[in-house]
């Protein structure tokens, strides 16, 4: 698409402004996080530090700050939890998107499918996510079925609870994303669809080539919101035993009773992830911006 690769002067300035301190913080956080994963799971034994142990011995930090020493001691475990959180979020939002697009199109342009789509979104949005996860994990034989599949829970492949959580978050996120996309579809002037049809495009092609490319752009701000929510809601996977960020912190805290310290640490990690996600979405929004149309929102 021709819009991709275009960069206005304003974008360059905005990016320039964000550089500096922010970039250093990003690099520090993500550099550390990724290096942790590489060290703990990728590097052969004997390389780097012992998997799961801090880069710096907490004992050496103890004289400087006991809080810092405490944080450093548990960060390796939290890095593993953050990995789960990120995979849960990214896979669920991506699969949810794949479902949300046809669901929203069915809702706006379908006849009986509109009712089906409405039923789906209302059912999912109208019931608690936690209840949905419980039904999927405890109520249905899903977990048992998944456990029977090859490789589940072996090596780097997470166990069945993780997959159930993916299914739950995907369905839940699909419903919310469908709502954002639906309102974006409605905001594309219907005349363009008619113009597409008047060229001989079928209804589905006119939606695909004319309406959707615009609607998906308009949906980005709302959709970013859903991404941010999902990063945080993914912590509900803790209740079905997925060792994601929140669950890791809770497990550690239940042993040493340092709840406040651990949840503060975890909160900061969520914050770093969410600020990154929201900045990435702003950059995407600017990149796909249609020249001459309005102004993109800068956060």
């Amino acid at each position: 698409m021709a819009t991709v690769g275009r960069e206005s002067g304003e974008t360059v300035i905005a990016v320039g402004r964000r550089t500096g301190a922010a970039v250093i913080l990003y690099l520090a956080f993500w550099g550390w996080l990724v290096s942790r994963w590489v060290n703990d799971w990728v590097l052969p034994a004997g390389w780097g530090v012992q998997p799961g142990t801090p880069y710096i011995d907490p004992a050496t930090l103890e004289p400087i700050s006991s809080q810092l020493a405490f944080a450093v001691e548990f960060l390796p475990a939290l890095a593993a939890g953050a990995y789960m959180t990120l995979i849960l979020t990214i896979v669920s939002i991506a699969l949810g998107f794949v479902i949300a697009v046809p669901v929203s199109v069915a809702r706006v342009y379908g006849r009986w499918t509109a009712w089906l789509s409405l039923g789906f979104t209302e059912l999912i949005r109208g019931t608690p996510l936690l209840a949905q996860l419980f039904v999927l994990y405890y109520g249905l034989p899903l977990a048992t079925e998944i456990r029977m599949l090859p490789f589940v829970g072996t090596g780097p492949i997470p166990g069945q609870a993780f997959w159930v959580a993916i299914i739950g978050f995907t369905i839940n996120s699909a419903a919310y994303q469908a709502e954002y996309i639906r309102s974006a579809l409605l905001s594309v002037d219907r005349g363009q669809l008619v113009a597409g049809r008047s060229l001989g495009l079928s209804q589905i092609d006119a939606i695909r080539y004319v309406v959707l490319p615009q609607a998906l752009r308009y949906a980005i701000p709302g959709w970013s919101n859903e991404l941010v929510y999902l990063i945080k809601y993914s912590s509900l996977a803790a209740f079905i035993t997925v060792p994601e960020l929140f669950e890791v912190a809770r497990t550690i805290a239940s042993q040493n009773f340092k709840y406040t310290a651990l949840f503060t640490l975890v909160g900061l990690m969520y914050l770093a992830i969410i600020i990154t996600a929201s900045n990435v979405m702003t950059a995407v929004e600017e990149r796909v911006h249609i020249p001459g149309l309005g102004q993109t929102g800068t956060r």
Binding site: Q192, A195, R217
Partner: peptide, 24 residues
Amino acid sequence: VFQDINLFAHLTAMENVTLGLKRV
């Protein structure tokens, strides 16, 4: 040709014209 013109807002003038040629 329409009163409210109805060009495809996300496409250049060129792409507005080529869409039908390519997809239809």
